[in-house]
Design a protein around this nucleic acid. Structure first.
Lengths: 218, 218
DNA sequence: ACCGCGCATTGATCAACGTCAATAATGAGC
DNA sequence: GCTCATTATTGACGTTGATCAATGCGCGGT
């Protein structure tokens, strides 16, 4: 993943990425409480991460797609702090964390890259906090769809047509809304002509207006 | 901060912490957009961090007290992504990030400690996401006060009596509530006999019940 | 291909929280 | 110590999104 490495360094980073692991749709990659040993880089597929609080509340904390790194939350305690579950048949690279630590002591580009990835995860979480703390239901939905669109396009897929891999309930959990509110919100965005929804298929007609819909109404 | 270092290592970590800096109440430690150079460890005082979105929305993303580290969000982009502002006259240690990087390549205890701190920040942010996404107003307030209480007690202060350094509006921003709702919530917790509020002074009478108030009603 | 269950949509009602407003209390600065 | 601006409290009312409920649809699994 990092750039600017010598041939030899690239080789060593390659062998760091030990094994691959397939995860069938619905199956966990790891569960909260399990001992943390490795990070996981998604090769193909789609995941959700979910935290469960002591009193039984559940919340989806993120959706991860190809190229993204999972498991960073486990470093602090040595145990995973959330469940990671595949939303479709997926494959990940297993990155043993102690080997990553060693190697990043020798290759400073790798070290720097790793620190940046962690930092960006913090910034991402803070923008979700902002979404949950200040946005209204329809704004949250618009922000969610625009974010997905951007991530798809940066992977070479269409910015304006894609399939949701998650249910309305999972979207709602992520956005701090009930599934009915998600459904109504999508219908409303459709009525406004910004997009078409057919089950999990989304076609965005007016991406600019959808971005505007992230801001407070008129 | 890390433990288990040799004499010599401790010395080197000490000289890593270059200078100290005082920040008067209300003054910024750093602002969003400023070039990121250093992390800051709080020696004394109290801070808030606040993000401002493009469309002008503001949200307090955290309150930091002595011993806590600030600035991690800047590593990813090389620019600070939030404003950090002192809520009372404060003093911080300036930790130049490139020197920390170098030193953590040589002292693996330091490296590991730093990774843990970043990871815990991610976990903390996720628990705030859960608070914002699933809790009701009074539950959020209870969780906020219990969290403050725990952090005070771990610093040797009273778990049951302390002064809030922030306004109702700042609490509300952090908890995704309006200041009136915060005020009403505190009054309600007082009516229920769980605590006494007198402006910024909080006395918790029933810490156990306050913890229970974090869970869904009855 | 079919079946059945999970998922989605939509409506009606309600509670929680936001908004607007008026007043009171505090404390920072002179 | 006084004053004024900031902060906090409380009430009345409005809006948003949750809840409860009923129906329809689609897709995964056999």
């Amino acid at each position: 993943m990092p750039v600017g490495l010598t041939e030899q360094e690239i080789e060593r980073v390659d062998e760091l990425v030990g094994t691959r692991r397939k995860v069938a749709r619905g199956m966990p990659l790891y569960l909260s409480g399990e001992s943390f040993q490795s990070l996981f880089a998604i090769r193909t597929g789609f995941f959700k991460t979910e935290v469960v609080s002591e009193d039984g509340r559940e919340q989806v904390t993120g959706f991860q797609m190809a190229g993204e790194l999972m498991g960073l939350d486990g470093i602090g305690t040595g145990q995973h702090n959330c469940d990671a579950r595949a939303l479709e048949d997926s494959e990940v690279c297993v990155i043993p964390f102690n080997r990553l630590s060693e190697l990043s002591r020798e290759i400073d580009t790798l070290q720097h890259h790793f620190h940046k990835v962690m930092s960006r995860e913090i910034v991402r979480d803070q923008s979700v906090m902002m979404l949950l703390g200040t946005m209204r239901a329809e704004e949250r939905l618009a922000a969610f769809l625009v974010n997905l669109s951007q991530r798809f396009v940066s992977r070479g897929y269409s910015a304006t047509e894609f399939n949701l891999r998650m249910t309305r309930e999972e979207i709602g959990s992520y956005l701090g809304l009930k599934l009915e509110t998600v459904s109504r919100g999508l219908s409303r965005l459709q009525d406004e002509g910004l997009l078409s929804v057919s089950n999990k298929n989304i076609r965005i007609h007016k991406l600019d207006d959808l971005k505007k819909a992230m801001s407070p109404r008129c």
